[in-house]
Design a protein around this nucleic acid. Structure first.
Lengths: 239, 239
DNA sequence: TTCTTGTCACCTAGGTGTTAATAT
DNA sequence: ATATTAACACCTAGGTGACAAGAA
């Protein structure tokens, strides 16, 4: 079984409608897709990999006036289907289970001719990341058992729209009460990225310890946990 | 067969008497041990690893007045013998031969209780790095063939003295003629490290393009090549 | 209009020798 | 005296969103 790390953060992004930047050179995902694995054969070899499937056959655009996504027509031609093998593959089950598995080398691009092995996506389309565990069958005729030698895990909270620039970038001030906006999903993706991604710290205009205070009671205690811990415990998930 | 990369740089250090810093936290080697491999079975799996063996049973000290190393007695008790597996191990022969194999994750420490998996060495002792290629035998009784399933390569020009601070740190000015000092091996290790290690650029007091000019005719054309190229061609070596 | 691209300042993360203080 | 340690300024290397300019 597989447990998604940083689930609380993924949930917060998902409520707003997660957007992931794609660039010609390739851009990492944030949040990074990270998992904990359980129940593998410690001595057996496994390959870990990810791919991305379209959520639907639509193209989207963002309406700034209504701050919402609209269908803008049928999907563009599908991009070359690629997979990203975790660089530690293959490795023993014991190795994979020993610590959190992080796909932080995975990069997204909109360059159809990319030859860096990055994942190619259409901008303004929605995607569902998938995580696959492949058992490396030592038998000679292992091809015959291919169907039963892998398992796929899908976390719906990791869905996102690929964009070349953030669309939903409503700003928020430090002291602003977000109760209403969180509920209706209208707060800015950009601000959440800036607040939670260490590499974007340069754009923070207030102390990160300031704004967990603004969360209404009952809200996910995500930012406080995120700000203080480098190894936070995420809720278990069973796809 | 194996070819040592940056051989010209190793040679220049070796002439001076290479010193490698060891710290409690672990310090990388410079130059980095890098090799090109040839003649592997492209489809077979190999493990690549390094270890370090004492050159002799002596302890050394550096005499500043005569600028030379002296024997200071018998060697201290041997450190725990460790090996460093290249992190890409195991991988196919084709993968290893595709590009230069770099051991830049290898770190040296003098902490006898190190639990980061670093190589433990005695300061003020001389060591010989060794490089091992292990064929991963697919046969069930592979242990029986262990003796014939690996090959060891030794490059004598990579020998060094482990130190906690550079001993031979004679300074040299930018325009200084080094003919005499290079021949007798009395120029400073520190200056060569500063000149050739990109991470030490902050300590350079003259343009790196300045001092290849000072090399006497017939000297190794190393620094000019090093300064300009990120993928320099090293001389072939056959241990 | 709407979307994409390239450049930039500002970060994280970590590899250098220096230096002063400490140990032996 | 000699050897080691820890804090430090200064680098490399690369991940951020902002912004202005360009493309469709």
């Amino acid at each position: 079984s597989v447990q998604l790390e940083m689930k609380a953060l993924w949930d917060e992004f998902n409520q707003l409608g997660t957007e992931m930047i794609v660039t010609k050179a390739g851009r990492r995902m944030f949040p990074t897709f990270q998992v904990k694995l359980f129940g593998m054969d410690p001595m057996a070899d496994y390959m870990l990999l990810m791919d991305f499937v379209p959520v639907d056959d639509k193209r989207y655009r963002y309406a700034f006036h209504s701050s919402s996504w609209l269908v803008a027509g049928k999907a563009d031609p599908a991009t070359p289907g690629r997979v990203h093998y975790h660089p530690d593959s293959p490795a023993k089950g014991a190795q994979w289970m020993k610590q959190i598995v992080s796909f932080d080398k995975l990069k997204l691009t909109n360059n159809l001719l990319d030859d860096n092995g990055h994942i190619i996506l259409n901008s303004m389309h929605r995607y569902q990341p998938r995580f696959h565990v492949v058992y490396v069958d030592p038998r000679k005729d292992s091809e015959k058992y291919a169907e039963e030698n892998f398992k796929t895990f899908v976390f719906e909270e990791t869905r996102f729209t690929a964009v070349t620039a953030y669309q939903n970038h409503r700003v928020r001030a430090c002291g602003e009460d977000l109760s209403g906006f969180n509920a209706s999903g209208k707060a800015g993706i950009t601000q959440l990225k800036i607040a939670s991604n260490p590499f974007a710290k340069g754009f923070r205009d207030c102390d990160p310890e300031d704004w967990p205070r603004n969360h209404r009671p009952g809200a996910l205690p995500l930012m406080s946990a995120f700000a203080r811990s480098r190894n936070p415990v995420a809720s278990p998930t069973q796809p």
